[in-house]
Nucleic acid binder design. Structure first.
Lengths: 315, 315
DNA sequence: CCATGTAACGAACAAATGCTCATTACATAT
DNA sequence: ATATGTAATGAGCATTTGTTCGTTACATGG
């Protein structure tokens, strides 16, 4: 057994004893014949590696009420609202991950083979990471965004690939960059045979998972270098309120036609979808984007936080 | 909203912030406008109330190896082995609960209506308590042991009832005491119409969950006042190695014929069952009982602890 | 063989948590 | 209104946990 494996094993053991067995780290150390600090490190390592999964079972009535209100107002089938924790971004991300993973798990669990479209974004990535390993080789996972990044290497946002790894499902990548160099280039990418095959598969997906992004200073598209600051300013001036996998929408939820829109290669889906399309997003920066996406009727499910829910309902 | 509800709500919120959001209790206190101690109490309350569910995702290879060995040796379809934590009974119970609940959850999750037989015992009770609330009104849960206790009141071991409450399933109780006053009395109970109906239902169950008990000093049957110390001595002298819902078996796993055996009203099932029958037990006191039950081929699944697994495999 | 970088380790300290106890608020019965 | 029991509260302290830092072990390349 590799050194790495051995460490994970021991960490898992320490985590069992600590979190489930209610031992102190000192007791664990004694039992495993290691130092107190080492026990502490093992437990910390287990948490860091995602070996420890925590769920809060009791729904908070305020959050439940907000979720119900959102369901009614925007015709959602699924809605989960997590408590807001000041503006601690780290905490928010973790909470959305836990709640999001719970929702996704319900679907993934099905034995019946499914096609699952997966978008991009940090929130979605965190959710996939939070998923337990469930073996579902019968499912097919489709990446809705181009897996080819302009600099070639980094595919760190290929959330779909991660999801496929987690579940052992088949993985279908979209052979394109997220944003093509020109409208012509975009048309080329999108007319490739493989693109069309994947796109066709995605059109019949049983489930679609997408992140919702803001458009503005420090927005994901800008941070990840897909658009320039100038382009962002132009988009905002043109009324951009948010985006999903690169598709920009305005405040009413309608697609925003712009120089950019003809260069985005990522997959599209109809408004008021008949199959579940679940969006994940939270945090003050995204209030406007979430509201816009909901107004546009792009989602049938949403996982968000308390403050965002309130803001959206108030708007 | 009731005072109680409000407290649970706030406890859940604190638990989210503490366990998921990674806040300190001080931060939680500030945010909720309460004292540091109060935040601590809320978190503790949430844990105590079972609002917080912890799972360790990574299988420990030693435990996995033991589980595989048990599967092979005793023809089990399912086996889960949790790490042993000295002889901390409390920790053992919690670990078995978590691992057991995980196994049970897999089955309960099914949408297809199921009939589930549920036995008795502290371990099984703890497992049911650990189950998340999943609404499954289509399932039917059958209590394998008499729900009528001799002193009338206490039905604290009616694990099946709890399970039915947790899942919102229909509940079928066995109208009988666990141990009848005499063989004649027993025959009477077992020939009642309702008993026969329930028994018939149980015979076609899709899943059976039972605890495994020891027979000896401080064994469950004695502790709960179902048998006297003298009777236990006699049973042990006659070769009793363990019991499941009152059915005593010897070291080879064969039913032990005794004055008691004709008075036990609880349901029976065939050895080498074709549908899943899962046993739950751990701890030094039960090593002999577990080995006996496995030898008898009564189970197709087992959840136990490392030390027990080793002991059984060594024997 | 040595040099060099990296991981493991434990001591010591700082921070966070849990517990006990005395006090206070509050409800219910008299 | 007053007594009386119960739950809520915070102060103070003990324990537990987390982090930093210097040292030691160990592997790898020269």
């Amino acid at each position: 057994m590799s050194r790495q494996q051995e460490k994970r094993d021991q960490a898992a053991r320490a985590a069992w004893m600590y979190y489930v067995g209610n031992n102190t780290q000192h007791e664990i150390a004694d039992r495993l014949g290691i130092s107190r600090q080492m026990a502490q490190r093992l437990v910390a390592y287990a948490v860091e590696q995602g070996l420890v999964r925590v769920r809060i079972e009791h729904p908070i009535s305020d959050c439940l009420a907000l979720a119900d209100a959102l369901k009614t107002r925007f015709g959602l089938a699924i809605c989960s609202v997590v408590p807001t924790d000041g503006n601690n971004a780290e905490a928010l991300r973790r909470m959305l991950s836990v709640a999001g993973a719970e929702v996704v798990e319900q679907f993934i669990h099905a034995e019946k083979p499914m096609v699952i479209n997966v978008g991009s974004g940090r929130t979605l990535k965190a959710i996939i990471d939070e998923l337990p390993e469930i073996d579902r080789p019968q499912h097919r996972i489709v990446s809705m965004v181009g897996a080819i990044s302009s600099d070639g290497a980094s595919n760190r946002y290929d959330v779909a690939l991660r999801a496929a790894e987690k579940t052992g499902s088949k993985y279908f990548m979209l052979p394109a960059p997220l944003i093509a160099d020109s409208a012509e280039d975009c048309r080329q990418w999108c007319s490739h045979r493989v693109y069309r095959v994947v796109s066709e598969l995605a059109a019949h997906a049983d489930l679609t998972l997408v992140g919702v992004g803001s458009v503005g200073p420090a927005c994901p598209l800008l941070e990840d270098g897909f658009v320039s600051e100038e382009e962002v300013s132009q988009l905002v001036a043109a009324g951009a309120a948010g985006e999903m996998i690169g598709h920009i929408i305005d405040g009413t939820g309608r697609p925003l036609v712009s120089p950019l829109s003809s260069r985005v290669t990522s997959l599209q889906w109809p408004s008021s979808p008949t199959r579940p399309v679940i969006g994940f997003a939270g945090g003050a920066a995204k209030h406007k984007a979430i509201a816009a996406v909901l107004r546009g009727g792009w989602l049938s499910g949403l996982v968000t936080d308390e403050a965002s829910a309130r803001a959206v309902l108030a708007g």
